[in-house]
Design a protein around this nucleic acid. Structure first.
Lengths: 154, 154, 154, 154
DNA sequence: TATGAATGAGAGTTCATTCAT
DNA sequence: AATGAATGAACTCTCATTCAT
């Protein structure tokens, strides 16, 4: 793309960033909805949510997620609030699953903190994961589930 | 500080960044060494390492850790390699503790992946932790230990 | 021109300097080639080379020659070597003419030193020549030829 | 010397430059006066003036002459005028010698232009002369005298 | 008088944005 | 809509100069 062409389509670079993040979050939410549609036990659902989150973060075409994770502060207040609202929706599904797991003793944790810590494990993977060598997304998912689930959900 | 003053003390902005990160990593390693000097069981040691890591990341004066986590790519190759070497030393202590916990069944995980996932939980905290309200560093430490340890080390 | 406009066309100020010097030397060499194409006796050729050199140095549009003479050290090694290579080609034509004049007794001098001294006379003119008043380029050329040629070439 | 110390001795860098140039020109004039005190024929005097000029320019400790030649424009008008006045005195001795040589046919040239051209040959030597290898100051002097004197002055 | 940290004007450079085509 | 030269604000850095010690 040429230097001036961006501004035929977006008012500013900030707007581009916002639209990319918006589209990324909507896509992630849509895929999450599909996953949640299949009613499973909480353990299986958590595994699926984790797997999906790794996909959204690490699939080849997912540069936008880097933006969602690390460029949020580049947006203005209004834009940031809208993205954060979508992130809130995305996290809500996790909250209910984690509550269920905590109540059944499959996970020992205070849910709000646990959710932050689990998202940290997942989100941090963009810093070190290399699709070319090492673990697969399935390996990551297994490792994460094993780490935090005290009675396996398999 | 005025525009030119920085360059009385540092050759360039890149050098400043490097020195800050170097000092930060050295300080973190020194504190880690002190923690490890007190010989405890693996569970207690892990708790102490986690607590220290939260301190290093989240204490008021620890802006440098943001740099270590997110500005590594701004360094040149030589500088980056030196910082990464210190990070390697820092992580080594964790690896041995995690191996011991895994071998005794206190943690269910493949160690290298588990270390990445655990560091993710901790490092991500700089994105959401707010000292002014909500959890304390003790709360975070408890939550993290509880989440991943299957037989508590207390 | 505004502060940032330079960098639409040149990667850096150093590159601008280099390109200006390169273009200047190429232009000088091209004009020298044309002069040398007309086969004349050595005395006439020397006069023409001198006249051309004064033109290249002193013509209104020849600010670039100031750069070639005095800013060579501002270039990096690779750039400087390329410019010096062109300067070497430019000087080569003079060497052969001076050798011929020396061998026929029209000029009494050891050629390599004489070439340096003659270039000094010519190049120094940018320090004192003023097109607005005083001598013309023809006057300068006559003065130079008269000074160093022992049997006039006219 | 340390960064601030300069200003214990000189009001500004410009003043330092001026004082260095002033001292250099005074020294050159003093040495020229001594040379001229020994009454010789014009040819011998010219040779001595050339030799002295090369010494002043190229002797190891003569960095100040570079300043006189190339940094004159860095001075303010008043300072420049004073240095140029000394340069005028310095050149005056040459003018009378050149006039005598021209009138006796030992040099064929219009004196004012010839003086400029000769100074060019000499002054340019700072650009290419290398004391470590190649010609000596005697060699340069011989070459210059031979080049412009039509009946040798030896 | 000497020091060197601090200053600030200015040079060199980047980059998001504008605009004529 | 697309282009890319031009713009100018902001950033990195340099350097002559000042000043507290």
């Amino acid at each position: 793309m040429h230097s001036g062409s961006l501004f035929c389509h977006f008012k500013s670079k900030e707007t581009l960033l916002y639209e990319v993040m918006l589209e990324g979050m909507r896509s992630a939410l849509a895929r999450q909805t599909i996953v949640l549609r299949g009613k499973h036990d909480a353990g299986t659902t958590l595994r699926q949510l984790i797997r999906l989150h790794f996909e959204v973060l690490l699939e080849s075409s997912s540069d936008f997620m880097w933006a969602v994770l690390y460029e949020l502060r580049a947006l203005n207040t209004r834009q940031r609030r809208l993205i954060e609202e979508l992130q809130g929706n995305y996290e809500a599904a996790w909250t209910s699953v984690l509550h269920e797991l905590a109540s059944t003793g499959c996970m020992r944790a205070e849910v709000p903190l646990a959710r932050h810590l689990i998202f940290g494990s997942l989100n941090w993977s963009v810093q070190w994961f290399d699709a070319k060598n090492g673990a697969s997304l399935d390996d990551l998912t297994d490792a994460m589930v094993t780490l935090v689930m005290h009675n396996t959900s398999r």
